[in-house]
Nucleic acid binder design. Sequence first.
RNA 1: GGGCCAAUAGCUCAGUCAGGUUGAGCGCUCGGCUGAUAACCGGGAGGUCCGCGGUUCAAAUCCGCGUUGGCCCA
Length: 1050
Amino acid sequence: MEQIDDQYRPADVESTVERYWDEHDAYEAATEAHADDPPFFFVDGPPYTSGQMHLGTAWNKTLKDAVIRHKRMTGHRVTDRPGYDMHGLPIEVKVEEELGFESKRDIEAYGMEPFIEECLRFAEENREAMDEDFQSIGVWMDWEDPYKTVSPEYMEAAWWAFSKVAENGLVEQGKRSISQCPRCETGLANNEVEYEHVDDPSIYVKFPLAEREGSLVIWTTTPWTIPANTFVAVDGDLTYQAVRAERDGDEEVLYIAAECVEDVLKEGRYDDYTVEDEYTGEEMVGWAYDHPLADRVAEYPDFEGAGQVYTAEYVEADRTGLVHSAPGHGEEDFHRGRDLGLEIFCPVEPNGEFTEAAGPYAGTFVRDANEAIIADLEADGHMLASGTVNHSYGHCWRCDTGVIQLVTDQWFISITDVKEDLLANMETSEWYPSWARDNRFRDFIEDAPDWNVSRQRYWGIPIPIWVPEDAEPGALDDEMIVIGSREELAERVEEEIDPGTIDLHRPSVDGLTIVEDGTTYRRVEDVFDVWLDSSVATWGTLGYPGADEAFDELWPADLIIEAHDQTRGWFWSQLGMGTAAVGEVPYEEVLMHGFANDSEGRKMSKSVGNIVTPQEAIDRVGRDPLRTYLLSHDQQGVDLAFEWEGLGEIQGKLNILWNVFRFPLEYMALDGYDPAAATLEDGELEVVDRWVLSRLQSVEADVADAWDDYRVHDAVNTVLSFITKDVSRFYVKAVRDRMWEEADSASKRGAYATLSTVLAETIRLLAPIAPYLTERMYQRFDGGATTVHALSYPEPDPSLRDAELERDIGVLRDVEEAAANARQQAGRKLRWPVPRVIIETDDPAVADAVENLTALIADRVNAREVVVTDVFDELVERARPVMAAIGPAFGGEAQEVMTAVQGATREAIEGGEVRVNGEPIELDEDMVEYVAEPPEGVSGTDFDGGTVYVDASLTDEIESEGYARDVIRRIQEMRKELDLDVEARIRVGVEIDDDRVAGFIEEHADLIAGEVRADAWLEAPDAAEGTDSLIERWDVEDVTVRLGVEPVAE
RNA sequence: GGGCCAAUAGCUCAGUCAGGUUGAGCGCUCGGCUGAUAACCGGGAGGUCCGCGGUUCAAAUCCGCGUUGGCCCA
């Protein structure tokens, strides 16, 4: 790794380093170096193995990697086991697609065992591809040993945790209204339901009252739930009206909330109406009505209490103000129905088809039956109005089928019973940013329903519940046996099994039976909701409960890092599981980052075609620039709008670092200086050295603070800005001359030592962010350790900090900037010295700073003399005509007066020297204003603490040096063109067609020869001979100069 | 439909918590420097601080109502 390219080429750097890491086992070296440090338990949120790395997951893993590397460098033994989430419906659906399946029946026909093998194969293949993806962006985690949710050890962690939940009395079986995907034939968790806008029926139905004239009017978008209608809900406090409505000469009485009457009658195209009566909802309770499909369906809710009006909280004065309620379907209806002690009637199968109870609709898919039901309602005269509405409706997150609400028997973790604990535990973890916890997360917890953990599927962790065979489902939690480990399983089941080798997947556990007290128990067929898998990751990562050593030392996790979608996902599932199982939250700190969107801030999606892949970014700019780019934006809660320009910008900044790094290498090599052995005690530190070292300490302190708060982007940007602004822009410029010096000197060694220190520490500061680049630089610069990532992170040394000096140089830089501006006004380039620079200030701190740094300022602004003063007394007051006064007084002559006044000195005006056409003119005081301006040849520019004046007047001596410097510059340019080594000697011939300028050059012959390493002067440019000589004609301040450069043979 | 977050120069972002003349980098443009040279530095142009209302002597900042985008929930 010795040869350093002139140019920063990320691809070359990264492939070189990648090879180096492989050959030297660098990752192992880094972890071993910190093997005895105090522990830091990081837990990787497992990505789902159904796809490849995208920009969002690349960001996620890059952030994790940076934090892990930083933690390691700051003296921690970091748990860096990556994880993969490999079970679940998404994979089943993909495999079903591959095999051309359409329903669960196809799976049963194919065979559960081969199907599950296909799922495992699919998940493993994806996992391997993702392994490679993550390693391709330099993520150093323990890729030899990732945790997989499909391993027996991991699945056991889920069984163990669930058995603890059961011990705590929080596992319940019950009928619940759930979102069911009729295609996948399984219940879905709330977060598996995605909402899309669709057109659905919008019908107003009349339910004829049994004991009085008229009908209740309800509105619904799901005609297929009408067969299950059990009651009609009203708001007890709302006013309802009985209206006699007329349409086409027919009259009927309708009951509608008062606020809704107009709208409903308009929907029904009624011609007129009169209000006959008013009731509160409370007064209507108990009114009976006839089920509108009573004559059509085989069964309908006609049991005790059905077919009546009840109050319910979910009623609003919207549509009709009366709500068709089917506890067999809707969740709210279900809860209210159960409170009312009503039976739960649901004539729909898990696959969405009506049962025999639904009579003519039996065997029809519910949504397909809508049409027939609408037609029947119309035929029977129950339809008030029928149309369509566009609204958002839930769909299965995987197969995009519209979900249906059904009541089925499911297993739950009753987290609503421990809500107080959840809220209390939530407070014990620290979130970055904190608002995510205190607003979003808290809201979610407060509203969270019980967790339905059962899925009627195949590819998942089997639920370890055994229930008495032939028992009626409903409340089996009283009789269930929950198994918590493979060991316990082997002990309790009748069959002979080896706990060391048993695969816990279906179907191998399905046939196992337990016989206790004469009762035979069989496993429930369900598998866990896949969110339960990852909820036990803190245990699974440590191999608990199979092994408990690491658990005893490390649990709970010190930190987890995920994007904001996990507030409702993994952040939540872990809190829920931790609280239900062991009464604790499994993590102490949460770093929540955002999503990677496109440059417009829009979500990247296939359909929009705005996807940028990490591979594309790596191909175009490289891994380190991509990582640095991702980490240079806010990492706390906000999204990233990805755009290529920003990526290029970052590459540019890293290129500056590269240039700063290789700048001293050649000089050091010439002098045999070893940067790895640099000490600040060797050599003499000048003021700029002390300054940049002080800045380095300040940067290190700021960076440490930033990491402490997980403000990673602040850490990144602080280092980058130090490199570009302080080191490149200021320090390198200041030490150039000292590096170019041929002779050894204490000053040069001081500069070497300073730059070596700054670079060595800056490399380490940036190592967690840009691991390849920094490794490359470290190995070239030092290489004492196997890898830079095994070293410790730089810490500020207070003895090198000098706040006063940092302030003073701040002033100097302001002054320098203002001086550059003033020079530009005066048209005097920096290469030409100026006799004086005057700094006018009334701020003693600024004056002090300038006085402390006079020599340095003089050097940087190229001035013979630097003066600081509180009043620059050479300013000349110049007149400005006030035309409002001059115009009326002089009429036609006003223009000429104006010209005469403009720019005259106060002396001239007051001495009556202003003349127009030779005649002195009388000027009143109000006709002239005065502005203080610098004298001839001086220009001034304001800065924060005052004004900088540059006296740019010329003398022979200054002109002489100016021309000499210009000639030096041209010769250096030619050396460069000849590609000469830094130390190569030359001979130079000069020809100038201006005798005066030729004289100036002659005066400075020794200076020029020294600067350009010339051994001798040639007679003329043309005397430069040989193929490797160069003769060029230059224009210097309008004077033609011909130069010949001839390398001296060695 | 609800909750949370974001919107500031052509682009990416600071500044918002603690109200007091909107800043930086990139890009553009003009100039300068230079044995870091496809690098580096300076000047200039460029702003309805998303909109509307309110509080206040004073609002990018605080409050309310919207718009657009993102995440989550229904």
